[in-house]
């Protein structure tokens, strides 16, 4: 069976179909409504952070893993100082203040002030 000419060469139909594309455009008001819909439905950054686990939020507050390391080191040092006796603290403080005679004098003055009120 032979096909009619218009079936063999349907360029006229392709051209008309392509032209149809430009005749189905949404109007501006509708596009504005759709844009508003999109903005209304959009996830808010604040809501996104609420989904973050509590430990992650805490880590963020103290400055991440670096902050956590610093905090841990501080706790260890503080604990070690707390375990040490007053003499050790005094000598450490005296060393920090210069040590030797001058350091002893300053420590004596500090103790005297504490006793006298």
């Amino acid at each position: 069976m032979t096909r009619p000419d218009h079936m063999k060469d349907d360029a006229w139909l392709d051209a008309d179909l392509a032209r149809l594309k430009d005749t189905a455009l949404p109007d501006d008001d509708f596009l504005a409504r759709l844009t508003q819909d999109a903005l209304n439905a959009q996830p808010r950054p604040a809501l996104a952070s609420a989904k973050t686990p509590w430990w992650q939020q805490t880590l963020d507050i103290i400055g991440g893993w670096g902050g956590l390391s610093g905090l841990a080191a501080t706790v260890v040092v503080g604990f070690a100082i707390g375990l040490g006796g007053p003499v050790q603290v005094d000598s450490t403080l005296a060393d920090l203040l210069g040590g030797g005679v001058l350091g002893d004098e300053i420590m004596f003055a500090m103790e005297f002030d504490l006793e006298e009120g």
Binding site: P26, F30, L31, L34, A38, Q42
Partner: peptide, 25 residues
């Protein structure tokens, strides 16, 4: 868009809505 970028919301709407509308019409 999912990160909250309003400009992306507008661009996506402008890009996709006409295509879907034409198909539906």
């Amino acid at each position: 868009y999912a990160k909250g970028d309003a400009a992306a919301a507008r661009a996506l709407t402008a890009r996709l809505a006409p295509r879907v509308f034409a198909q539906a019409l």
